[in-house]
Design a protein around this nucleic acid. Structure first.
Lengths: 227, 227
DNA sequence: ACTTCCGATCCTTGA
DNA sequence: TCAAGGATCGGAAGT
């Protein structure tokens, strides 16, 4: 069951009703100190209509609100409902760009476009699900596998770093099979046309990477998402 | 002086010209392994027109690109040019919302709306300024983080028939490396959970397929291959 | 991304 | 013990 805390002020938009109707969603309405929806631990969503978003840049309300949210939550997401560029305003393009950039580059706040309240509700629900339960599956990164034989072999080789369709064909022609290529030393990979020392090294490294050597890495990933 | 690395493919959009004209900007154009603009030490910007953004969800290009970017950069920002909701598509609203949510909640990727190329250029320039002057000077914009990792190994294995994200992980866990899996006999492949006799046979066939055996098997297929 | 569909895998049953 | 059945999972294809 997914839990969402919503600020009561969002009541009139119809979003609360939409969220409440979603299956597997346990909606709790109350007064939040900041933001509009808490979709996960340390993750809050602020909803703003395009007009209000732009206005809030001018009167500095936006920066204040974001700063406040960041005190309580690690991750802040702003859903902008409507089209910013359609908003009639005296503000310069530079000011808008500055605000957008500041939000993301300095504050690490993410923006999401939404066309209307219904879409916003859908987004909030999906974000809550993702934040609390994850995807539930892994995304298949490789599309449309070909049928057996040469195409298949080339497709497999295309998974190697630095290898696209062209190099895949060259490697296959040179080594004769995927298996032979997998057992090749870097120096031998170099013999295939189109494969240089650098690519050869990366390929060899990828193929021979051992689970046993797996160390914890990617603090970078956390840093990137933790803002 | 702010430095921006731009991918040469962005040339025709007019963004490069706009960036080059900006004062205090040192623009360098070249081939980037991923993303379109490097605006800071560990920050890359990917530009996508709304239509292309939606299309890239369907064919999984988006996920692959983002995954690649995250291998090299801590922070990834996608600038969406145009209005996603205006894009005519047969995809469900749920799928779009799912993609937007996934990007931000799971991957920690930021999104920015932009109305046109000029605004995009302005955004890129501003982001670079914020990233470099706001977060401390850093000339070394090269994201040189070699990345031999589990992800890459799994990605390679995902190319095998009957192997998706789940089985790729299981195979890698069982055999320890791509190379070991490539040298496995069908009976051994069967030992890995999730791999039965049938899938094992198909995998073995694909890996050991030999160019030498490339004779008449399916005239129709050969005709279509254009080789 | 999501949904639907299909085939393979795996587990239980029962002889 | 093994064969057959059915529930489940994962991959492929389409929107």
């Amino acid at each position: 069951m997914i839990e969402i805390f919503a600020d009561m002020r969002e009541g009139k938009s119809g979003i609360l009703q939409a969220l409440a109707q979603m299956p597997n969603v346990n909606l709790k309405v109350g007064a939040l100190p900041c933001g509009d929806f808490v979709v996960g631990p340390n993750m809050v969503v602020e909803r703003k209509e395009a007009k209000d978003f732009v206005d809030s840049i001018k009167d500095r309300r936006l920066f204040e609100q974001v700063a406040k949210c960041k005190l309580d939550y690690q991750r802040v997401i702003i859903i902008v409902e409507g089209d910013i560029s359609k908003v009639r305003t005296e503000m310069s393009k530079e000011a808008i760009a500055g605000a957008l950039s500041w939000l993301q580059v300095i504050e690490g706040v993410s923006l999401t476009p939404s066309s209307n309240a219904a879409q916003t509700a859908l987004l909030v629900g999906t974000m809550a699900r993702h934040a609390q339960e994850g995807l539930g599956y892994d995304i298949a990164l490789r599309a449309a596998k070909p049928k057996p034989s040469r195409h298949m072999a080339e497709f497999i080789l295309e998974g190697l770093p630095g290898v696209g369709p062209t190099n895949a064909r060259k490697i296959l022609d040179h080594f004769g099979s995927v298996r032979a290529a997998c057992n090749a030393m870097p120096i031998e990979l170099t013999k295939a046309p189109g494969i240089g020392a650098k690519t050869a090294a990366r390929i060899h490294e990828a193929i021979n990477w051992e689970v046993a050597n797996e160390t914890m890495e990617s603090p970078a990933e956390l840093a990137g998402s933790g803002l």
